[in-house]
Simulated scan of single mutants.
Amino acid sequence: MKVMHSKTIEEALEELKSSINGISTQEAEKRLKIYGKNKIELEEESTLKIFIRQFTNPLILILILASFIALYLGDLKDFYFIVGIVFVNGLIGFYQEYKAKTKIKDLLQLSIPKVEVLRDGKVVELSSEDITVGDIIILREGDVIPADVRFIETNNLLVDESLLTGESIPVEKHAEKVLPEDTPIYERENIGYGGTYVVKGVAKAVVFAVGLNTEMGRIYTKLKIKERETPLTRSIRSFSKRLIITLVLILSFIFVIGLIQGRELKTLVMLIIAQLVSSVPEGLPVVITIALVVGAITLYKKKTLIRQLPAVESLGSATFICTDKTGTITENKLKVEKVYSLDNEIIPLVFALCNDSEIEKGDPIETAMLK
């Protein structure tokens, strides 16, 4: 079977059981049940899991063990103090991570674009999540392409595919092109990919893949890897291990010396346990958590959200960052610094009238002219 970029417009519409007038609302509802919503579901960590994770740090586990030893020895003062420290530390970390999770969820909801769709032969505006295979969508300058589509009409169409290919230069698209099956993604002039956006021109297109079946969805599926330890959590685990080994060696030596001196076994055991409890740095987890929270707040003020507190420290541990610059770590925006003209009154009028962009979306040059 031919892939979509190697089909004519008529073949594409026929295979997708669609037409230039789109599909009916009833048919769309059936297809939504088959293909699902047009969204990439991010794995959401439960609130309980976030709370429990605050107490799985090796240093915290040592403190919890020390608190039970203190309770066993009848030292209620130390027991309440250590439990209080652990609980407060857990609450601080939980609050910060839960707040980040909520804000990220809200931002994702706000970022769901609207799209013009032909349903029952009429143009309606829908959430991009509600479009499905076979839908005919209308794209204009500045629109985000909501799913993988085969263009069926194009007029001076330029698409920014930097999100997918890394190339910041907009790509020309032509609906009438029929390409060989082995054409690479970045050369498929008749295809639009979900997540890319229209820089210039207008188009009509038929949706052929949604959600995880899009190119972006496939990339997301491949990149779903197990979370790795951050440098900080790795350091804490290493420190906790060294602390335990050091304490065991020192206290074992003291225990042996006590036995050689003929001291009572019960007294020696109580001494060793008491020393173990007093050697654990109760305040260290709180100091670490507060430092991370301060870092997270600083990043938040710079419009960066941290999902898990230890990640605050990760960037500080980076020695080299290798990345493409244009459109990746820059905003891919232009700015008019100075205008030279014999007639300064006519220039703003030309900038405004010879322009199809909006203030925040469209061709970077035209957007700069508007601003």
Score class of each variant (00 low, 15 high):
residue 1 M to P: 15
residue 1 M to A: 14
residue 3 V to I: 04
residue 7 K to P: 09
residue 11 E to H: 02
residue 34 I to S: 02
residue 35 Y to E: 08
residue 35 Y to F: 15
residue 37 K to F: 03
residue 37 K to L: 05
residue 49 K to L: 10
residue 49 K to R: 10
residue 49 K to T: 12
residue 51 F to G: 13
residue 54 Q to E: 12
residue 63 L to F: 05
residue 68 F to P: 02
residue 75 D to A: 00
residue 75 D to P: 03
residue 82 I to N: 04
residue 90 G to Y: 13
residue 90 G to H: 14
residue 94 F to N: 14
residue 97 E to G: 03
residue 103 K to H: 12
residue 111 S to D: 11
residue 116 E to P: 11
residue 119 R to P: 03
residue 133 V to I: 04
residue 136 I to W: 00
residue 138 I to E: 03
residue 140 R to D: 14
residue 144 V to E: 15
residue 150 R to K: 02
residue 153 E to K: 13
residue 170 P to M: 01
residue 171 V to E: 09
residue 172 E to D: 12
residue 180 P to T: 06
residue 183 T to A: 00
residue 185 I to V: 05
residue 188 R to A: 00
residue 191 I to H: 11
residue 192 G to D: 08
residue 196 T to V: 00
residue 200 K to Y: 06
residue 211 G to I: 01
residue 211 G to R: 07
residue 213 N to K: 13
residue 214 T to I: 00
residue 223 L to I: 09
residue 223 L to H: 05
residue 224 K to M: 03
residue 225 I to L: 08
residue 231 P to Y: 08
residue 232 L to P: 04
residue 232 L to D: 08
residue 234 R to G: 06
residue 239 F to P: 10
residue 239 F to I: 09
residue 245 I to C: 03
residue 247 L to F: 12
residue 254 I to S: 01
residue 264 E to D: 11
residue 268 L to K: 00
residue 272 I to Q: 10
residue 275 Q to K: 09
residue 276 L to I: 01
residue 280 V to A: 13
residue 281 P to S: 09
residue 289 T to L: 06
residue 294 V to L: 15
residue 297 I to F: 02
residue 300 Y to D: 02
residue 301 K to L: 01
residue 306 I to P: 10
residue 307 R to L: 15
residue 311 A to V: 10
residue 315 L to M: 12
residue 316 G to C: 05
residue 316 G to E: 09
residue 319 T to M: 05
residue 325 K to F: 13
residue 328 T to H: 12
residue 330 T to H: 12
residue 347 I to N: 02
residue 349 L to R: 14
residue 355 N to K: 06
residue 356 D to Q: 14
residue 358 E to K: 14
residue 364 P to F: 02
residue 368 A to H: 04
residue 369 M to Y: 15
